[in-house]
């Protein structure tokens, strides 16, 4: 995965934000200049901006609406983003809002992005409404491509039921997502697994690369 710009798209609540945050941390281990862009114009809570301090500590640049605007629920897009897209020194992670609606924002950058070194990855959780079958996943992919006017280049498998996830849930979900990726004729880039399963579900259990996820978006009682 060496493309300079990675765009995470997917169904609403598919896990894009957690994956994008974790991926930016992983990316920072390999590259000096990493930035993550919170392009979520749909969700009012649980957004990348909430992990800003943790990411800044790791020397990752976070582009997100600032201060009082962070809570405004307005579709704010910083002019800085266009600059970063064109800055060849930066490894850039774009965390886009959910569904086709959340992807509308990408239209803004299409003319910049199309000739650059980017890939757009579809995050799929087969336990979410509207991506529970191969047919639904295909439809989601199509709607996102239509709205963003960009091509999806790979699938990220993220099968989970949040804290109620178990190993069987992960394995079963992954099988379905893999089949969906085959139908879409897209490579399955990696499977995301909560780090708490790292002892039970090892990389050798899967044909695909395994990416262990640490949860950043916690609930107030956790």
């Amino acid at each position: 995965m060496s493309k300079r710009i990675k765009i995470f798209v997917g169904g609403f609540g598919s896990g894009k934000t957690e994956i994008a945050i974790n991926y930016s941390i992983y990316c920072r281990k390999n590259y000096r200049q990493v930035a993550i862009v919170d392009l979520d114009i749909v969700n009012p809570y649980f957004r990348t901006r909430e992990a800003k301090d943790a990411l800044n500590l790791k020397d990752i640049k976070v582009i997100a609406p600032q201060d009082e605007w962070a809570y405004a629920g307005l579709p704010l897009i910083s002019p800085e983003i266009k600059g970063l897209i064109q800055d060849a020194d930066y490894h850039l992670i774009l965390d886009v809002g959910g569904d086709d609606i959340g992807t509308v924002v990408l239209g803004n950058f299409k003319s910049f992005l199309q000739d650059l070194d980017y890939e757009m990855l579809l995050v799929v959780n087969s336990y979410r409404p509207f991506t529970q079958s191969i047919l639904q996943i295909k439809q989601m992919a199509q709607e996102i491509e239509n709205t963003s006017r960009l091509k999806i280049s790979g699938v990220i498998s993220n099968p989970n039921l949040s804290i109620q996830t178990d190993e069987e849930i992960i394995k079963q979900g992954h099988i379905l997502i893999k089949r969906a990726a085959q139908k879409l004729k897209l490579p399955l880039k990696f499977i995301c697994i909560d780090e708490r399963f790292s002892q039970k579900l090892k990389t050798e259990n899967f044909k695909e690369a395994v990416f262990y996820i640490k949860r950043f978006m916690k609930l107030p009682w956790e």
Partner: peptide, 10 residues
């Protein structure tokens, strides 16, 4: 409340 509406659970 907003949190119950936005949070995700199985």
């Amino acid at each position: 409340d907003g949190l119950l509406g936005q949070m995700m659970e199985a």
